[in-house]
Each structure stands twice: as C-alpha cells, then as structure tokens.
Design a protein around this nucleic acid. Structure first.
Length: 624
DNA sequence: GAGCCTTTGAAGAGG
DNA sequence: CCTCTTCAAAGGCTC
C-alpha cells in the first residue's frame, strides 16, 4: 500500500509527498508489478542518486534519447496565441515520451554569470552547461540526438549550446570553446575540464573513477591563464563556489556522495574578472570569512575564519550594481567617483537568491534543448513545454531533480544559515519594487472550484472517504485518483471535484482571448504523456518520502481513462489545475486564457476516435 | 526600464 | 493545519 513514509529521512526535499498522482490507485496490478521498481526508487531516494541505478536506467534513457527529436518548428508568432500554438505543437513531438533522457546531464554553472564576483554578465544569467551523465549513456545514445540537434535549423545559437555538445560522456576532452552555456552568455570552457562541476560534482564520470582521476585533470592548470587550479572538492555544488583553500575541509552534507579526489576543477578562467570556481561544499573557514564580510552578521555562520577569497555564492546577486559598468569605469572615472560607487554598493545588500527547486533545475537544464528544438525563445512558451515535460518525466527522473534541489537547499542553508526566503520578498528589498500579480478578475477566483483536500472535502466525520494517505496524515494536498482516493470523488456528476467536462471533445476551443480563459482552461489538459512501454508505473504513494511528482498521470490510454475511470481522469486533471491556479491566481488566470499547447494536444489525443497515439497521461488544468 | 508571462516547487505569512 | 503569496529562471513582450 502506498505509504507516505515521511521518515525516510530523505524526502528528497520535496514537501510534496502528499501529492498524489492521477494514476494513483489506478491499477493495483500495475502497482504490484512495479513494486520492485518502487523499492528501487525508494532506495534511490534513500541513497539519492545512485550511480549503479543510474546506469541501469541508462538503457531506457538512451533509448529515449535515440528517439528522433521532435520536429523542429519555428514559432515566430509574437502573439500569445501563437505561443500557445507553438507549445501545443511541441507537445505533439515532445510529449510523446519524456524527452528527458534520464539524468545524464550535468549542469555546469555558467561561470561568467552572476555568481562570479566580477562577472560582466547579467546577474540574472545563471546558466549551466548541460552534460550528459557520463555513466549513463554511452555515446551511441546521444549521438543521434546530438546530430539531430546540430541539424536543427535554429537561428538561435542555442542549438549549439552546451547540452548537446556535452552529451558525450567519453569526451572529456571535448573542447567547449565553441559552445555557449546559454543563449545569452557565451562561455569559454576549458577543454580539459569538461566535467566541470555539476551541481553535484559527483555526477561526472570521473567521479566514479575511484582514485584515478584522468590525467588531464591532475595538475590542473588553466590553459589560458596558466594558473594552476586548486584541487576541487567534488561535492560542492557549482552554485556555491567556495574558495580554493576550503577544499575538502568540511564534510559534505551529502556524505553518500562520495567525492573523488582530483576532481576536475571547474573550468573557470582565473584571469580577468573570472574566478576559479572552487568547490568545497560546506561552509568552511573561507566561506565563513567571506560571508562575514559580505553579509549581515546574523546571516553568517558562527564559525569564523580567515580565507578571503571573496568568491560569492552563485546565488548572491548584488542588486542594482552593474558589473560591467563598474568594470569599464575603472581607469575612466575619478577615484572619488569610484569611492562613492563603492560606498553605494556597500550599502546595498547582496541579494541571496533562493535555491532552485527541482523544476527550476530541470528548466535550466532543458531550456536550451527546448530552445534549440523548437527555436522558441519566449520563456513563457518554453516554460509551458518544460512544465509538461516535467510531468512526463518518470519518477526516477524527477527524483533526481528533487534530489538535486534538496542538495541545493541544503547547501544554501549551510552557506546562509540566517537567510530566509522572506528576505527576498520585494517588500524587504531595498529599492526593489514589489512584484504584483495581476489582480484576479472577479469571476476568475478559483474559490468556486478550488480543489478541496480530503479534509475539506469530506470533513473529519467522513474520514472513510479520505484517501489513504490523507487518512494517515490527516491531511491531503492533492487529489488522488482512483484507489478510492478523495480525488475521484464519486463526483463525476458535478460535485466539488468534478471537473470540467470529462470529454475533451466537449471542450470549447476558443482560447484566443484571455476572457475565455477560464473555460478553456477548465477543459484544457495540462499535460499529456505517452507512457513508454518499458516504463514502470509508479504509484506515488509507494515511494515513501519520494518527491511527489506533481501530477504525473500514467494512464493506460486516454480512452481508458475517460471511459473506464471517468472520475479519475478528469478529477486528477482538475486537481492539477486547481493547484496551479490557486497557487498563482493572477498568472494562472492568464495562463488559462491561453489554449495551452498541452491542452490542445490532449483534447485531440483524448478523443475516442483519435488515431494518434494514445496519451498515457492526462492532466487537465481546471479553473473555475 | 519595470513588470508581465509561464511553469513547478519551496517557504513563509496569515487565518 | 490549510491557504495564499512570493520568489526562483528565462527571454520576449508590453506599457
């Protein structure tokens, strides 16, 4: 039975253990069939990313990768509709199966970006090189996709972005000079350090070469500067660079991630304004010193020491200070001017960004890929696609990101013990205007159709109606499909949970205007997933403490979902939608207006007569 | 130039 | 305990 084992100790950092999935309770058989798989996942959870496991998954991953890339289309339209349309089309191609090939990517922070002290780039441009998980897939898998990607006729340089280039595990010497880390920021990578760091350095294949770091990694010397790089601690996340002196001083919070010695130093040029990207995970002396000098006392960990590297945390952004200008100012302005500037800067509190969550990490990693594949540039549209892809990911795949995110948070916490998300609230930011979501339209509120949790829905007196997990925890966060979960409340007839018309065909496609949002949204499926045959069906609750893949629904097919499990199918969708909308009323409203690509895709997929491949998952976003 | 859009997840505030 | 809000990334778009 599904268990919410909060105790796993390692909940991957996701608080969504409560989140149920559409497939939840769907088919016990499947569940049992995949029980072993679930256990494996549980193991993964406990041990986080397991190398061997990753390896095992590589086959499927590589398989996915071998799939022909979605047709490349250009979406030039500027209108929102066009964006949606684009997204929709993307679904057609991208959504058939999780494009994401497992976790073979290593995210390499863009060293030129914000997190580097003097980076001349936009502080917001934190970018990463994406690297395929070395052990996972061996060249063949990525070859085609890479080639395909290369072939992609994208006006954008994105097609040559790191991810693809780095997909060759064995090519540690691959020269990265030619690649860009992001669309915005060109980054020069040292050929010898292809594996730079990942948020978790241990993801690099060298890491798995016990005691035998590749020769080129030893005696690491920056080719450009000729400056030898200090050994890097593998455990450290690139997000949180520490001074070279700090390497290995502290134990990694994630001890299970065994660091390798001689980890490749993050290929950052030490010359110019760029700094080496040291990797020491925990807050060590240097970091302490650094933090002490840069942050309010209360934010700095009690331990004090000495190293003065001044290497900022990647998440640290000095607000309102343009590095470029200050840089160029040097020698141009009077010392007075500089002094005043410095003072101003001092006055300004460094902005410590929130650690990225699982989805954000995923987006960072996959954005370039999506951009290259569809030549889309608008983040809104891309994010839509990525959101659907995210839902299409298998639990294992998502788990990896959850794990990464958990580590990020961990690291962030260690580095900034006193930091609070609240600190970043606009209200607390000096000179920063508070972002305001658009006010809800009167009828736009999600109140009416706000998804009710078990408790709210059935009340305490009807505990028996609650889904099991909810009963256990006495609370419920998401709808649960099937398995007598609350989600599928028998209310296919119009009860609270009842969602939008179960029949997609009934959905009115008129998403052209925002005014029509609500309705369209209601029926618009958010995600449509083709379930790979080889993919096990994971029951959310089976994974104790596993991060809850939000609304990942795996249905045998849409038809089945619609016909056999009426309540389940759309209820889940409903749930999802509600969650989303409730989360961000304003934005959700806007989104609703758009005929989400996914939704469109869904609607036709779900159609009984649809000859298209049967969607395995359907997530509908409901609104009112 | 600020803010919006769009996504999911995390965290905090408030009821 | 639950709900709501904000922020995190990103880049085009709008005002």
């Amino acid at each position: 039975m599904p268990q919410l084992n909060g105790g796993g100790g390692d909940d991957l950092g996701a608080n969504d253990e409560m989140i149920s999935f559409k497939d939840e309770g769907e088919q016990e058989e499947k569940i049992s069939e995949n029980l072993s798989a679930e256990r494996d996942l549980a193991d993964v959870k406990s041990s986080l990313v397991n190398e061997s496991e990753t390896n095992q998954n590589s086959s499927s991953d590589s398989e996915a990768e071998r799939r022909p890339p979605p047709r490349s289309e250009t979406f030039r339209d500027k209108t929102r509709e066009s964006l949606e349309e684009a997204a929709k089309r993307q679904d057609g191609g991208l959504f058939k199966s999780p494009p994401y090939p497992g976790y073979p990517f290593i995210m390499i922070p863009d060293l030129t970006s914000p997190y580097l002290p003097n980076g001349s780039l936009s502080p917001t441009a934190r970018t990463y090189l994406q690297m395929k998980w070395p052990l996972l897939d061996v060249n063949h898998g990525s070859l085609q996709s890479r080639q395909a990607l290369k072939d992609a006729r994208s006006p954008s340089p994105a097609h040559i972005v790191g991810p693809f280039c780095l997909e060759f595990p064995g090519q540690s010497d691959l020269s990265l000079h030619q690649f860009q880390l992001s669309n915005k920021v060109p980054v020069v990578q040292h050929p010898h350090h292809v594996h730079p760091l990942t948020p978790l350095i241990t993801y690099s294949n060298e890491h798995f070469t016990p005691g035998n770091p590749p020769p080129h990694l030893q005696g690491d010397v920056d080719p450009k500067t000729g400056i030898p790089r200090p050994p890097q601690h593998p455990d450290i996340s690139p997000y949180y660079p520490l001074s070279p002196g700090s390497v290995g001083q502290l134990p990694h919070p994630l001890g299970w991630l065994v660091p390798q010695q001689g980890q490749p130093v993050y290929p950052i040029t030490t010359g110019g304004f760029r700094h080496p990207y040291p990797t020491a995970l925990t807050v060590n002396a240097s970091m302490q010193s650094f933090l002490s000098s840069r942050f309010p006392h209360h934010m700095v960990p009690p331990h004090h020491s000495l190293h003065q590297t001044g290497i900022p945390h990647p998440a640290i952004v000095t607000p309102n200070v343009k590095q470029e200008s200050s840089h160029s100012d040097i020698g141009l302005n009077s010392s007075k001017h500089q002094d005043s500037k410095k003072e101003d800067e001092k006055k300004k509190q460094p902005h410590i960004k929130k650690p990225l969550n699982a989805f954000m990490l995923y987006m960072k990693e996959m954005r370039a890929k999506v951009v290259a594949e569809c030549t889309l540039k608008e983040s809104a549209a891309i994010n839509q696609i990525l959101g659907r892809r995210w839902h299409a990911l298998t639990r294992e795949e998502q788990a990896k990101y959850y794990e990464l995110a958990r580590k990020e948070r961990q690291l962030h916490m260690q580095l900034y013990p006193g930091w609070s998300a609240r600190d970043n609230y606009a209200g607390n930011q000096q000179g920063k205007k508070k972002k305001r979501k658009r006010d809800k339209q009167p009828g736009e509120g999600n109140d009416a159709n706000t998804p009710k949790k078990c408790r709210a829905l059935f009340g305490l007196d009807q505990l028996s109606l609650w889904c099991k997990p909810c009963r256990r925890k006495k609370k419920c966060i998401r709808y649960i499909q099937g398995e007598g979960s609350c989600a599928s409340p028998p209310s296919s007839d119009g009860s609270l949970l009842d969602s939008p018309p179960s029949s997609p065909s009934s959905v009115a496609p008129s998403p052209s205007s925002k005014e029509s949002k609500p309705q369209t949204e209601q029926m618009q499926p958010l995600s449509l997933t083709m379930k790979p045959a080889h993919q096990p069906l994971h029951h959310p609750h089976l994974l104790a403490g596993h991060p809850p893949p939000p609304s990942l629904v795996l249905l045998e097919n849409s038809a089945a979902a619609a016909g056999k499990m009426p309540g389940a199918a759309h209820n889940g969708a409903h749930d999802h939608g509600n969650v989303s909308s409730s989360r961000q009323p304003g934005s959700s409203g806007a989104s609703l207006a758009r005929p989400s690509a996914a939704s469109l895709c869904h609607s036709h997929s779900l159609h009984p007569n649809s000859t298209a491949p049967q969607p395995l998952s359907l997530v509908t976003k409901s609104i009112e």
